[in-house]
Write a protein that binds this DNA or RNA. Structure first.
Lengths: 208, 208
DNA sequence: CCTCGCTGGTTGACAGTGTCTACTATCTAT
DNA sequence: ATAGATAGTAGACACTGTCAACCAGCGAGG
């Protein structure tokens, strides 16, 4: 007979896995709950016992992305609060985005209509963000004269913005416009990290 | 009788307008060609005479966003190649993103499955990007000792990354995580602009 | 003047989707 | 042993994108 998929014991987890696989192979907009069910060899209504709607299964996929992203950052960023640590974090962040473009897009591509409706996912997102945020707030920053309020928060946002923007630009079609080779992308990354260091601590003159 | 919508002379343009209105009021994923047709008082197949598929109408909407974005930037960025001009461009960029969150998301939220398939849209995008790119490449930059290749391109990417990342972060749910008020967002923007100046020209000490 | 083909419109059909409701089997706690 | 929850099935409905076939006007060429 045809290779009827075996019904997994944990259907909920299996749905998330399968949904991700479908997005990966056919694209986000082709994801359908019925397809998930079919591939898992269950009825088209079975997934509804675990997810209230298509958006909810998508939210679960995104939540898993945040969780894995957090694990990656925890594993690849040292504990110290120095600029070496900042450099490492930046590279880790950009590496993750480069190695997991789909996951990155799911997390930051605003793919869900109403993110705030999905509690679990929001928590995973906030935890991942808190990793970045905490690390950035501990940096020994230099402030220029005109910076009235010296809230570290705003500098954290500056660093994060640069990392996030660079990650997005490098994996969007923009790189075609700029005709950036793979090697040049690496240079752009190093350059950005240098400029960040220079921005936060002018004496370093951009050295990592 | 019920307010039957009058059939517009230029159906193609009307479709684009109506599609954008639908996205604005009901969300991107609720956009349907049949709904567009219904609102315009034409048959459900009429739009297909002007757009090959749902994606193609979406691409037309996005193309229009790029065109308007380009107009905005051209109108709000001075011609000079100084750092004042950089500051103005940054603010214009971030203002546009703040005032037109939907358009910004349509342009940068990777909302189309295969952007490269839509010629017209790609051209609009490239023109808009070239405005940023040209402006950034003309800046008088200072290079630190360790920056081997002094291609302006990479610094342009750094600046653009920060602007783009900040625009994205400020309008994503992340700001809730960071509990940023509207006033603090403005501070974050000014801070980021200062840090950019500092990064590119350490002597300025971040003053605009 | 007739006819051809093109452009832009119509209706109808089909497969596929999300989701509602109703039914069933199976385990579990009392 | 039985009642209830849990996790699955089957069917129906409204809606979608898209294909095919058909039709009105209209300008060009004979």
């Amino acid at each position: 007979m045809s290779p009827a998929p075996s019904k997994p014991v944990d259907l909920k987890q299996a749905c998330i896995d399968e949904a991700f696989a479908i997005i990966q192979s056919k694209g986000l907009e082709k994801l359908s709950l019925r397809d998930v069910a079919r591939r898992l060899g269950v009825s088209h209504q079975a997934p509804y016992k675990h997810f209230a709607s298509r958006d909810h299964i998508l939210a679960a996929v995104v939540a898993r992305c945040y969780a894995e992203f957090a694990l990656y950052m925890e594993a690849n960023v040292p504990e110290t609060d120095s600029f070496e640590s900042l450099h490492a974090m930046g590279l880790a962040y950009l590496n993750y985005a480069r190695e997991h473009p789909l996951e990155y897009r799911l997390m930051f591509g605003s793919v869900l209509p109403d993110p705030e409706l999905h509690e679990e996912m929001m928590q995973q997102a906030q935890y991942a963000f808190s990793l970045l945020h905490n690390k950035l707030e501990k940096l020994p920053l230099k402030h220029a004269a005109d910076m009235a309020t010296d809230l570290e928060k705003h500098d954290a946002i500056f660093v994060w913005s640069t990392l996030h923007g660079l990650a997005t630009l490098l994996q969007s079609g923009v790189t075609d416009t700029l005709t950036l080779s793979q090697a040049e992308k690496a240079v752009a990354i190093e350059r950005a990290m240098s400029r960040i260091s220079l921005a936060l601590d002018p004496e370093t003159r951009g050295a990592p």
